[in-house]
């Protein structure tokens, strides 16, 4: 077993420190070491998007990032989307639009959708579908997810100054 490395990063606005082996993925570190279990493991090879988190402002599959690579990085997970006990509009729209059934893919979709709307506040249906294609959902048929993202876009536009 290789020696553990000390890593310091910012997670949902707070400084975190952890020890990890080089072979530990960021997903393992988040879930098992830091016990932030919001990001889910669906395939462990980058094909389902359930483990999506923000790494330095970009959405990534945390199963394909090594924990040691997070040194100095800024991370955001589903646990950091709501603030001050208020759901983010994207979370609220997922609930109001019934955009989840079993809920296992939801954290990944929320992170990807939030990142999309931050990059493009007014995406077309095609762009939403293109950008969310790395996130698999087996329950909903995607209809209500796409509509929830469209609804959240409108909410965020209304809220924008």
């Amino acid at each position: 077993m290789s020696k553990k490395t000390h890593v310091t990063a910012t997670l949902n606005g707070e400084t975190v420190e952890f020890l990890c082996e080089p072979r530990h993925s960021l997903l393992e570190v988040l879930r098992d070491t830091l016990q932030m279990t919001g990001a889910k493991e669906g395939c462990n090879n980058g094909n389902c998007g359930a483990c999506t988190v923000m790494l330095n402002g970009r959405p990534v599959n945390s199963c394909l990032v090594l924990g040691v690579e997070a040194e100095g990085a800024t991370l955001e997970t589903v646990e950091g989307i709501a603030s001050h006990a208020h759901l983010h509009p994207i979370q609220q729209c997922f609930l109001e639009g019934a955009a989840l059934q079993c809920g296992i893919c939801t954290p990944g979709f929320l992170i990807a959708a939030k990142a999309l709307l931050e990059q493009n506040p007014n995406p077309s249906e095609h762009e939403i579908r293109f950008k969310l294609a790395n996130n698999l959902c087996r329950c909903t048929g995607y209809d209500k997810i796409v509509k929830a993202v469209q609804a959240a876009a409108l909410e965020l536009q209304k809220a924008a100054p």
């Binding site: 879930r31 098992d32 016990q35 932030m36 279990t37 919001g38 990001a39 889910k40 493991e41 997970t77 589903v78 646990e79 989307i81 709501a82 759901l87 979370q91 997922f94 609930l95 109001e96 019934a98 989840l100 809920g103 296992i104 939801t106 954290p107 929320l110």
Partner: peptide, 23 residues
């Protein structure tokens, strides 16, 4: 009617406990 599901907040904030989340 279409109320928000009772486990909704847990499931959009990452708090819902799936088996793999147990430690």
């Amino acid at each position: 009617t279409r109320p928000i599901r009772h486990d909704g907040a847990d499931k959009v904030t990452g708090k819902a406990v799936y088996t793999s989340d147990l430690h």
